[in-house]
Nucleic acid binder design. Sequence first.
DNA 1: AATTCTCCCAACCGCGCAACG
DNA 2: ACGTTGCGCGGTTGGGAGAAT
Length: 310
Amino acid sequence: MGRPPCCDKLGVKKGPWTPEEDLMLVSYIQEHGPGNWRSVPTNTGLMRCSKSCRLRWTNYLRPGIKRGSFTDQEERLIIHLQALLGNRWAAIASYLPERTDNDIKNYWNTHLKKKLKRLQMGEEGEGTSKRPSSNNQSMSKGQWERRLQTDIHMARQALREALSLDSDPVQPNPSQHSYLSSPVTTSQASQTAVSSSGIYASSTENIARLLEGWMTNKPKSQAEQSEESASGSTRYCINKGLVGYTESDSSEGSASFKRELATPDMSEFGSEPAQVPLSVIENWLFDESTVMVQGVGLVDMQLGDASGLF
DNA sequence: AATTCTCCCAACCGCGCAACG
DNA sequence: ACGTTGCGCGGTTGGGAGAAT
């Protein structure tokens, strides 16, 4: 006997969310914080199933989400992490606090997979005997697993070091924070609804506008944001959500929105990976000499050995 | 200008796991 | 120990937007 689907109830709405629904959801979360999703539809009056509410929040409404095109660095990070962790998108997303697992998954499926395939084809066209990984085509599954374990061990070690180097004093506890500090007004709501002509919720701007005025702290200007991203800073920080956090927010607001996602492997470190400045992780990830195991880098594994595993 | 094709992403679905009674 | 419930995750899909014909 299988488990009944959670959304087979009559009257449960499906499909794209409307601005009004978003506001209802955000209002509720403002008061109660995310979680206890089961009670959200009944308490809000939303004709959505709990799952849908959770997804809408985590993938779209949650402040701090960066949307739009991925940077080269993000791309490389994803490729490395995918090679290391496989399709564990939630785990990968925990290293990119501004991106959702869904976003990363979509980006992988629509862009990176093709990109890697193209690269692989290109290399194959040039000849297959040169690359070290080609030697590993014959590597047994056991060998590959041992190598993967070594990689994971090294990854853990590197993260331990990273954590000990950079101990962030902020220990957020989402349950203790008010999620959105000032209530949204009906006029703000209608403004949002009116301003969005036709397609709703397809841009960061919409969400930013939606949430504008909810924050105690002044949102960062677009100019500042673009300047920041243009500077090519690799220091990803949970406090730098596009919806308007500044570094100084960390004392309260941003901590509230900290990703709940922590990879199970990370729990033993007593801290979530998102708290680690990702520059440290990136340095480690991009340092070929660190990730090289038995002379084969992870990228090689991705392009060669590991490709057959997907 | 109209139609078809392709790409992309928000949302859905089903499964597994953990907590709880 | 077992059944139920709720949540989180990964895979898949539907439909809108833009490109190509």
